[in-house]
């Protein structure tokens, strides 16, 4: 009767753009694949995102951004997670990123970068595989 370990994912939108359709589609798709998804809404600061991730004790954080501010906001999220000793949380990103930024984002520690047209099943499979690999 022990509960199956549930994968908990935080989906957040840092920065100022108001385009949350992609984030909502991903949140719903992950829910439909059996995950518990905490959706925090628009215009989150890195501090808010990291505090939410900490309190909710999530396994993964997905950041959606369309304002091109990713190279300012993503490193800050990574830094704050480090300060809280939670660099173990899986990070992935969704949105529109210039090709040359993708290696940079991955170098920050984002294991997955999903652009427009990504298959939501692919994102769910990616999370599951990454979490399984971490034990």
């Amino acid at each position: 009767m022990t509960q199956q370990p549930k994968i908990r994912v935080l989906i957040a939108k840092p920065g100022l753009d108001g385009h949350d359709r992609g984030a909502k589609v991903v949140a719903r798709a992950l829910r439909d694949s059996g995950m518990e998804v905490i959706y925090t809404g628009l215009r989150q600061t890195p501090e808010m995102i990291v505090e939410a991730a900490l309190q909710e004790d999530v396994d993964a954080i997905g950041l959606s951004i369309l304002s091109n501010a990713h190279m300012a906001l993503f490193p800050r999220v990574v830094e704050l997670l480090g300060a809280e000793g939670r660099r173990d949380i899986l990070l992935f990103a969704g949105g529109i990123f210039p090709d040359e930024d993708v290696p940079e984002i991955k170098k920050l520690g984002f294991r997955g970068v999903f652009g427009p047209g990504s298959d939501t099943r692919e994102i769910a499979d990616f999370i599951r595989a990454e979490i399984a690999a971490r034990g």
Binding site: L30, D32, G34, E36, V37, G41, Q44, A52, E56
Partner: peptide
């Protein structure tokens, strides 16, 4: 078994 937990939107 999945869930979409959105109450934080109003708590941020």
């Amino acid at each position: 078994g999945g869930a979409l937990l959105g109450d934080r939107i109003r708590m941020m």
